[in-house]
Design a protein around this nucleic acid. Sequence first.
DNA 1: TTGAAAGCGCTAACAA
DNA 2: TTGTTAGCGCTTTCAA
Lengths: 344, 344
Amino acid sequence: MSNMKRAITLKDIARETGVHVSTVSRALDPNGRSALTEDVVMRIRETAQRMGYRPNRLASGLRTSRTMTVGIVIPDITNTIFPPILRGVESLLEPLGYASIIVNTDNAVEREARLLDVLRERGVDGIVHAAVPREDPRIDDVVSRGTPVVTVNRRLDRPGIPAIVSDEEHGISLLMEHLHAAGHRRIAHIAGPEALSTGQARLRAFGQTAARLGIEAPTGSTIHALRFHEREGMRCSGELLDRGVPFTALVCANDRLALGAIQALGARGLTCPGDVSVTGFNDMPFLDLIPPGLTTVRIAQYDVGQAAAQVLLRLMTGRADEVAPETVLPVQLVCRGTVGPPRG
Amino acid sequence: MSNMKRAITLKDIARETGVHVSTVSRALDPNGRSALTEDVVMRIRETAQRMGYRPNRLASGLRTSRTMTVGIVIPDITNTIFPPILRGVESLLEPLGYASIIVNTDNAVEREARLLDVLRERGVDGIVHAAVPREDPRIDDVVSRGTPVVTVNRRLDRPGIPAIVSDEEHGISLLMEHLHAAGHRRIAHIAGPEALSTGQARLRAFGQTAARLGIEAPTGSTIHALRFHEREGMRCSGELLDRGVPFTALVCANDRLALGAIQALGARGLTCPGDVSVTGFNDMPFLDLIPPGLTTVRIAQYDVGQAAAQVLLRLMTGRADEVAPETVLPVQLVCRGTVGPPRG
DNA sequence: TTGAAAGCGCTAACAA
DNA sequence: TTGTTAGCGCTTTCAA
């Protein structure tokens, strides 16, 4: 508190080296093709280094409207599939000098709106949005202000915003083929929230694959979870059971729903996979350590983050033409203990 | 891309309402005790609202050196104990309008140094540091520039920087009393990294509690892990076994080390808790779902984050006098399946 | 090849 | 009670 050091500015370096601030600015410009004497550049750089100069991003950002800061919007950082995505994003952006402002929406639209404002106020150069609902009018606002957005994991219904997603269709079909091969013919589905592209895509894939495999999917064999949450998995599997529609396997739209479903099954005296086989989606971290081992589909969480960063980088540096409207990453079937032959 | 909306500025509102920018600035000042006509204030606020005005934090930050942005330094976001801490911090800061820049050090000093610069360049108002080593000369630099720092989970050796920690001593003693009550007299310890306060504090508590309980802690019954990582847990328990020092229980400095240790035990044909009882520390998320259920000490992860935010807030608003040099949060013994009676 | 000057949007003396 | 003015630190056009 006593003696507070003032930050070193271009002016300080200018005074020290006896040149004008603008010359210092030019010498320190990383792209720095501005025809300065080699000697002057060297002297300035060395002095800057010696004095511990760090650029003031507020000042340069105010001037150039580039802050070297990006916003990352996720539903909830305590959901374990997001941290690897963040690390993936960071792995490309951080070495380039970008910092990340991370915000949690908890899937609440009003929170999302406020948090997008938080990012806007700070002039982020771009946004990685991993919490976007299928319809999100706010995104247009953001983009129309010149801030590029890329969605991750989820996508908007309408085109226009680049998205990085996993191959949901293939994932669901791998799962269902696996169940089919194990002998299952009556398969129920706990679908994800209708408002999210993942929920919708997996549900549609469920229907299509069922048809392709010639599996009956009677009315009532599908139910929508309101959130991707264990509790919803419990509630939905309970309701499925109450309906009396017979099924020997249960395809859940993600791992958390599956975990909840298995628990609810147990509470009713049913075993997994003895009485009903269950599958998940995502292969979230630590899933392999939880018995009986959920059979699921692994999405490339880290890669998805990297791909998002790559796309955003192009968008932020005026190379929008190099960006695919949608990038679909491959998935992988992970067979563990929750799938067995159907009972009886 | 076509029609890029320009952001609304104070000037726009001034023009619209027919007053001077400074008047607008005053009217919109949240603390706003600046003697303006009630009527004018209302008109300006309403206009700002209607036009969708959002303050430019770069500009105000440049002027006031308060950015309403904080930095959060953690070792690795994929380590599940950190997300709850972040949510705790955010729960207080976000409603106040603060944004968080989150950086991962991977416990590498050179990364930490660079990342602190990243935060500095952006003029963060304060830093929550959850990745601090016992000795960290860089912290003084940061603080001497006027940026308050509070450490979380870990603390510096020397005083001066407020810390929020959990009661490591009590945690270890709860664990060891529990083992002692179960009949264990030969207890080994996998200590955490020496460079971290958590490693050191738990090791010291181990020694003190052993002495108090009259337990022999022969040479070689303690080993230092180089990182808080499953692989180190495996390596260390293997080496402990190789040394031939007999033990019936193994106190690990955290859950990850314990998880690794149990796995290594299994690889050698030893069972837990049959052959050796094992304990952890932290009670990380999902631990309860992993068999046989690690007996551990629960730290209040979310609360620790909240407490850190509280302290930082005081530091940032000139109420340093209200800040305790150290805040120690209570812990709780969580008994699960990895502790049983000693063999033979 | 370098310097001078303007200005990004905001706040805070100081004046009136 | 409101307006004027200066300036935070930086980049960039224009001049020299």
